[in-house]
Simulated scan of single mutants.
Amino acid sequence: MQVILGAGGAIGKDLAKELKHFTKKVRLVSRNPQKINENDELFPGDLTDTQFVEQAIKGADVAYLVAGLPYRVKTWNQHWPVIMRNVITACKKYKCKLVFFDNMYLYDAEKLSPMIEETEVNPPSKKGRVRAQIAQMLMHEAENGNLKALIARAADFYGPGISNSMFNEAVVKNLKAGKKANWFCSVKYKHNFTFTPDAAKATAVLGNTENAYGQVWHLPTVQAQTMQQWIEATARELGVEPKTMVVSKFLIGVLGLFNPLMREMKEMLYQYDRDYEFDSSKFETVFKMNPTSAKKAIKEIVGAL
């Protein structure tokens, strides 16, 4: 049996579909889990509750921590270390392997092109410092032989039917509605995105590959291109003009006075004012799995609207 912790999010749903190829039973853990496969076990509860996490992991061979928390520094500081500690403790108790689905926020802002698994950890943001803290907690246990664990790391998301993707919300949906595609700082810099179905498939493969443990893996991610190219490709698929509005740092600062999300975005703008190239060649070489092309991914995203 394998268990998904945070099963209701963008990755959890696709991961449940992929895990049926590796295990007869999948346990879905979230506040309000919904069946993806016919024989899924639903396990509702709160990952900040130590006893609940122990029960959620009991009996599992592999646990996938793919939870997402509200995009607020205060929430991340309060809950992420607790969740990671709970999951590590339970996995050690029941000899369960752990796969942590992570992002790139912990990397040095001056070394985003390219980002590889060995890129220096030097988070420039408060949210990045939280991610660095919990990743270090996990790898410390793995390196000391206390736990079989790995980190599966993704770039920014895009994918069909997800609502927490900047690309989906600011580019695809705006263009489809006849509005301008919005982006931060500039559209001249390179950026790339991890397609959620690719991320889920690769995460399932990693969790079921014994010699993948003890390592960090970048999940298959399409080659970077300028945001202007991304916007033009999306406009072509939609059959509209590639109109664009660039939101400046100054404007985001002003909007942050009134909009909580913009306030949280301010410290993350370093990701948009320089090239952002997430390299997944290690995974692609080892597992012979290439990312879905940008053209095909955009087509699927548009088709799901």
Rank of each mutant, 00 (worst) to 15 (best):
122 N>F: 13
299 K>I: 00
247 V>D: 01
57 I>G: 00
96 C>G: 02
29 V>D: 00
2 Q>N: 11
202 A>Y: 04
91 C>H: 04
60 A>V: 05
20 K>Y: 05
133 Q>K: 14
292 T>Q: 03
153 R>M: 08
28 L>G: 00
276 Y>Q: 06
214 G>F: 00
177 A>S: 15
7 A>P: 01
249 K>G: 12
267 E>M: 08
294 A>G: 11
150 L>D: 01
240 V>P: 01
163 S>N: 14
59 G>R: 03
177 A>Y: 07
93 K>E: 12
234 T>D: 04
33 P>M: 06
294 A>R: 14
238 L>I: 07
247 V>P: 02
201 K>E: 10
302 V>H: 02
45 G>P: 04
67 A>L: 13
48 T>F: 01
277 E>C: 13
262 M>H: 10
106 L>D: 11
53 V>A: 02
240 V>W: 00
38 E>S: 13
145 G>M: 06
110 E>V: 05
57 I>R: 00
3 V>T: 09
263 R>N: 14
31 R>V: 06
200 A>L: 04
16 A>H: 01
120 E>M: 11
48 T>Q: 05
182 N>Y: 13
21 H>A: 13
218 H>G: 04
109 A>G: 09
31 R>N: 09
105 Y>M: 11
240 V>I: 03
31 R>C: 06
263 R>Q: 13
225 Q>M: 15
72 R>I: 09
62 V>I: 14
205 V>P: 01
203 T>G: 03
65 L>C: 06
124 P>M: 09
222 V>N: 11
6 G>R: 03
203 T>L: 12
181 A>T: 02
68 G>A: 15
256 G>D: 08
157 F>N: 03
13 K>W: 04
141 E>S: 14
113 S>Q: 10
49 D>W: 03
